[in-house]
Design a protein around this nucleic acid. Sequence first.
DNA 1: CGAATTTGACCGGCGC
DNA 2: GCGCCGGTCAAATTCG
Length: 314
Amino acid sequence: MDTSSWVDTSLDLNPSSDRPLPLDTPKKEPSGNGNLIVFGKKLSMKEESGALVEELNRVNEENKKLTEKLAAMCESYNALQSQLTNLMSKIPEKELSPSKKRKSESSNNNNNNDNYNFGIIGNSESSSTDEDSCKKPKEEIMKAKVSRVYVRTEASDTSLVVKDGYQWRKYGQKVTRDNPSPRAYFKCSFAPTCPVKKKVQRSIDDQSVVIATYEGEHNHLPPPQMEPTSGSSHRGSASLNPSGPTMTLDFGKTKPSGSDVARICSSSQPKMDSPQVRQYLVEQMATSLTKDPKFTAALAAAISGRMFQQSPVE
DNA sequence: CGAATTTGACCGGCGC
DNA sequence: GCGCCGGTCAAATTCG
């Protein structure tokens, strides 16, 4: 399934990238509307407010279009997700090799490479094993929630470090039988009482993909991002914690493609797809818009222009 | 010198 | 009961 075909359509949330959003236009447009920024000069108020209203209308239209696109994308995502669920439910359990049915977890590690799309593929509790847990009540007693995250890193990067915003202390490393690359074991070291563990191992198929398996829930707030990199540095890694199990996605080492939100969308659980993801997307768009200095400058100019317009000359 | 990581030993669960 | 295997411990080592 080619997820990228719908992932990278138009969700570049960074207005300062190469996409010519109309918000950029007030500054560049040669047709005399530079007055948005330099409205301290002598300018006809009516001209200015008319241009502003026009601009606002255009922005509103663009906003509508973007919202529609977003809704369409989410719908197509939902459709794909349900298709995937159908397919997965049709695959019989004999897909797993009989010699590896020691533990549910190790066997789950085997079927996850053929459909990676950088996200949580299998949440052993929520996605697919509801009826399995009826057959195997033992597995259902798993108190710790398990989520799996796929992270693309440099293939040459041998350190199994996944920067997800938390602090981890490595306490072991093992070479497992089904995968020649070593598996690293981490505990959350931010809070001494935090029970969360994670296992990190390279994918057997794609050495540039690292599989991080999280067990348990953090009983503390995520530590503040103290990366001293400049200004809008939070682009490096995103983490969302929508409902319970820690779901962290790392995009730090990937090339910044601008479709991070779409990947979050593709990586989410089927349960939380529509309303929450949409809200998250809208929030992300709003955030990236408000962080753009051009946008804030234009907004400030527009607001002050409005205020001038509404208060009549006296 | 203290903290973090490495790595071999050890332990417990599971299949035969 | 024995051996295999994944997970954890803890002493040794490295790093800042």
